[in-house]
Every structure is written in C-alpha cells, then in structure tokens.
C-alpha cells in the first residue's frame, strides 16, 4: 500500500450516496411513472401540462428569474467594491455582508413579515412621513423581496470569490496600456467573473424556484408556486404521492439544465468555495 489512497476509504461514502441519493431518486422516477396500482402511466408526468400545475410552474419560473436578477444586479457592484477594499477572502468587511446568512432563514423570512404586514413597520414609517400605505403582504412582490433577501449572500460569495482571483497585475497592465475603467470592467473583470456569476445564478435560481415555505409565509396562500403544488400533493387531504413525484420531475428537469450550465462554466469551483 505504497500509493496513497486506500480506495476502501471511499467505500462508506459511495454506499451512502448510492442508498440515500441515487436510490431515492430512482424511487421518485418509479412513482412518477406508475399509478397507485403499480401500473405504468404517463398521467402523473403529463399532469404538469394541466393549467392547474402549469400556472404555478410558470409563476415560479418568472419569480425565480426576478429574484435572481435582483440578487445579481445588487451583488455584482457589491462584490466589486468589496474586492477593492479587501484582498483577503475571509476579511472582516466581507463577513459583515455574509453574516445574515447564518441566521436561520425562517427567522429572516419572519422579519420580512414584520416589515410588510399591513400595519407593519413599512406602513408605520410611511404613515409618519405622511404617505399612503403600501399593502405588499400576500403579494408576489413580498415573496420576491423575501426570497431575494434570503438568497442574496449566495450570489455575493461566488462572484466575490471569482473577482478576488483576478490578478491585479492584469488590471494594472490594461491600465498602463491605456484602457479606461469601463473597458477594464467590460473586457477583463466581467469575462473573468463569469464562472462566479454562473455559480451565483445556479445557487439562487434553483432554490428560489422550488421554494414553498417563503411563498406560504409571505404570500399567505395567495402566491401559489410549483413548490406549494408539490408539497400539497404530499401533505394535504388530497395527497397523491404518484402525482407529487410526477410533478417533481419538472423541477428535476430544470435542475439538470442548470447542472449542465454549471459544469460548462464553473471550472474554478467558485460555487463550492463559499468560505
């Protein structure tokens, strides 16, 4: 055993992944393509085309794109500024911006309820300033705001990690050769930060698309996303495991697409290098 890597050490992990990752996914597939009697059917998978299910799926898509867009637009300049004022990956100032991530995300969502409730902090502040109240609670806007807040750090970190890796000499060289700020941004910084941006997008898009608890906390049952539909298929009076599995396949399909994008772009591993 001269060569390092007793392969047997990988054994428990491989068994674990097989039993608890691959087999459960196969179970979803099996349930999706069978009915309660165990016969083959395409009905559960085709159910996604039913407007009752297609509507929430489309809504989830639109909302997660909005959330991802908001996060990206706010996070990129932040990551740029953070890169300039700190060169250290774990520096204090960066941590300050990641800190809310360590609060339980249900607590973070609860905080948004306090702000957005009809007589919550927002409307009280507006009242003091003599402005008309805004009723955001139980709207799509509320869910989008809450979700964007929850996932913001997951966009900042990968982009920041990609930006920190950019060699300062490269930028210096561009400056010496007469490139302006915008040229440097557009032709050096932006292309080099693409892996980070792609990681950030996957890390925000997929979870925000399948989210169901934020929608129920801030949407009050009025914002019905695909996650809520699937959850209801398992946990309501009309529970139908097979239908729920069939509908989950739509989410898995979207995830496979994002996985391919992830492999294509994220060769540096910014997504996993959270710290």
């Amino acid at each position: 055993m001269r060569k390092l890597g007793a392969r047997i050490l990988a054994g428990p992990y491989m068994i674990w992944m097989l039993v608890f990752t691959i087999i459960p996914l196969l179970l979803i597939l099996y349930n999706a393509f069978t009915n309660t009697g165990g016969q083959f059917t395409l009905g559960n998978v085709a159910a996604i085309a039913d407007p009752v299910n297609a509507g929430p799926l489309w809504l989830s898509l639109k909302m997660s794109v909005a959330v991802t867009g908001i996060c990206l637009i706010l996070a990129f300049p932040l990551a740029l500024i953070l890169r300039q004022i700190s060169s250290d990956k774990n520096s204090f100032i960066v941590m300050i911006f990641i800190l809310p991530m360590w609060m339980n995300f249900m607590l973070r969502t609860l905080a948004w309820r306090l702000i957005l409730l009809n007589n919550g902090f927002l409307n009280q502040a507006l009242n003091i300033m003599d402005m008309d109240p805004i009723y955001l609670m139980n709207t799509k806007t509320a869910v989008i705001l809450g979700t964007a807040y929850d996932y913001f750090p997951f966009m900042v970190l990968p982009i920041y990690n990609a930006l920190v890796k950019i060699d300062r000499d490269v930028i210096q060289a561009a400056q010496d050769l007469g490139a302006g700020d915008w040229v440097i941004l557009g032709r050096i910084i932006l292309p080099l930060s693409i892996p980070g941006i792609v990681s950030g997008i996957t890390m925000v898009l997929v979870p925000s698309m399948s989210e169901f608890v934020i929608a129920s906390m801030l949407g009050g049952g009025k914002v019905y996303m695909i996650g809520n539909v699937i959850e209801q298929a398992f946990n309501s009076g009309y529970a139908d495991t097979h239908l729920g599995c069939g509908l989950s396949l739509s989410l898995m399909g979207l995830i496979i697409i994002s996985m391919i994008a992830y492999y294509f772009f994220d060769r540096g591993g910014e997504g996993s290098a959270l710290w």
Binding site: A10, Y13, M14, M17, V19, F20, T21, I22, I23, P24, L25, L27, I28, N31, T202, V206, P207, M209, S210, F212, G227, I230, E231, F234, T241, G244, C245, S248, L251, M252, I255, S258, M259, Y262, S272
Partner: peptide, 24 residues
C-alpha cells in the same frame, strides 16, 4: 463519477431531496 454524484444533493432542489428521502 464520484464528484458528479456528490453534486446531486447540492444542485437538486431541497424539496426533491426531501421527497426522495421520504419515499425511501
């Protein structure tokens, strides 16, 4: 191959991971 399998729970939607494990 191992790294590919490793990425599954990471990229999979939590709700799907939860349902899959519940079924098992």
């Amino acid at each position: 191959a191992i790294m590919g399998v490793t990425n599954i729970p990471l990229l999979n939607a939590d709700i799907v991971t939860g349902i899959a494990l519940m079924l098992l």
